[in-house]
Simulated scan of single mutants.
Amino acid sequence: MASEDARTTLTPKLVASLYTEAMVLADEARSYFERQGRDDRDALDPIVRVSFSCESLKVTTRLMHVIAWLLTQRAVEAGELSPLQARTPGRRLGEAPDSDEALLARLPAEAVALIAASRDLYARVRRLDAHGADTAPPQPSPARSLLSRLERSF
């Protein structure tokens, strides 16, 4: 299969599925970092404890960027935005900081799993966003433009 054919089409069903995944992951992350994560964090060395807190913010940042992007796609589906408007810089997927691989080895397994899941979801949505950015709006046909000018002149 050619790479052109292997591209994923952004359908309402895909957007809904990704949105559900993002919301469930956001709820799991919130629950972990507010409850069990506190105990896990308190058991860490002070420097790693600060890094643990930073990683929880990175997870939140990734997920909020994904959710905002998916809501923009829903607005396109609803006709509230045009596909071209959805590709403007303020509506594209926001940048999210990556995690320090060396640090991840020092964090609790559940935190690492949530970090990995948020990174994976963000990477998938980033590919969809990049595909949309590569898709230029259709250009008017030069032949139709010439025909239109001829019609106006007669």
Score class of each variant (00 low, 15 high):
residue 131 H to P: 01
residue 23 M to D: 10
residue 60 T to P: 00
residue 119 R to A: 03
residue 142 P to M: 09
residue 153 S to I: 09
residue 148 S to Q: 02
residue 15 V to C: 11
residue 54 C to V: 13
residue 87 R to N: 02
residue 108 P to Y: 11
residue 9 T to M: 13
residue 67 I to C: 04
residue 70 L to T: 01
residue 130 A to H: 11
residue 66 V to S: 01
residue 57 L to W: 09
residue 106 R to H: 11
residue 32 Y to H: 00
residue 7 R to C: 02
residue 52 F to V: 12
residue 151 E to C: 14
residue 149 R to N: 12
residue 5 D to N: 01
residue 39 D to A: 06
residue 85 Q to N: 13
residue 119 R to M: 06
residue 7 R to K: 13
residue 112 V to D: 01
residue 11 T to Y: 09
residue 31 S to H: 14
residue 89 P to N: 11
residue 3 S to E: 12
residue 88 T to F: 13
residue 40 D to P: 15
residue 39 D to T: 07
residue 47 I to L: 10
residue 74 R to W: 05
residue 130 A to N: 08
residue 86 A to C: 12
residue 123 A to H: 04
residue 130 A to L: 13
residue 45 D to S: 14
residue 72 T to V: 10
residue 29 A to P: 08
residue 20 T to C: 03
residue 64 M to F: 15
residue 135 T to Y: 12
residue 142 P to Q: 10
residue 53 S to C: 02
residue 91 R to M: 15
residue 65 H to D: 04
residue 13 K to W: 02
residue 136 A to S: 11
residue 66 V to F: 12
residue 80 E to R: 13
residue 36 Q to T: 13
residue 150 L to Q: 07
residue 22 A to I: 05
residue 137 P to Y: 04
residue 124 R to L: 08
residue 87 R to A: 02
residue 41 R to M: 08
residue 21 E to T: 06
residue 53 S to G: 01
residue 44 L to C: 11
residue 137 P to F: 01
residue 130 A to V: 11
residue 118 S to T: 00
residue 38 R to F: 01
residue 29 A to W: 04
residue 126 R to C: 03
residue 110 E to S: 08
residue 41 R to K: 12
residue 7 R to W: 04
residue 35 R to N: 14
residue 148 S to N: 05
residue 16 A to S: 10
residue 53 S to R: 05
residue 146 L to Q: 05
residue 12 P to N: 07
residue 135 T to M: 09
residue 49 R to C: 01
residue 132 G to R: 07
residue 134 D to F: 14
residue 85 Q to Y: 04
residue 36 Q to F: 14
residue 145 S to E: 09
residue 95 E to S: 06
residue 85 Q to V: 07
residue 135 T to S: 13
residue 137 P to W: 03
residue 124 R to V: 01
residue 82 S to N: 06
residue 101 E to C: 00
residue 9 T to N: 06
residue 57 L to A: 11
residue 50 V to I: 08
residue 34 E to L: 06
residue 135 T to R: 11
residue 88 T to A: 13
residue 49 R to H: 03
residue 92 R to Y: 00
residue 32 Y to I: 07
residue 45 D to V: 10
residue 10 L to E: 06
residue 104 L to G: 00
residue 84 L to E: 12
residue 6 A to Q: 02
residue 63 L to I: 03
residue 28 E to G: 05
residue 96 A to Q: 06
residue 110 E to A: 12
residue 3 S to M: 14
residue 127 R to E: 06
residue 136 A to P: 05
residue 122 Y to S: 03
residue 38 R to D: 07
residue 31 S to W: 10
residue 122 Y to F: 08
residue 4 E to D: 08
residue 152 R to Y: 05
residue 129 D to K: 06
residue 46 P to D: 04
residue 146 L to Y: 04
residue 87 R to C: 01
residue 3 S to G: 13
residue 20 T to S: 05
residue 13 K to S: 06
residue 59 V to N: 00
residue 55 E to Q: 10
residue 125 V to G: 03
residue 125 V to P: 02
residue 83 P to Y: 15
residue 116 A to E: 00
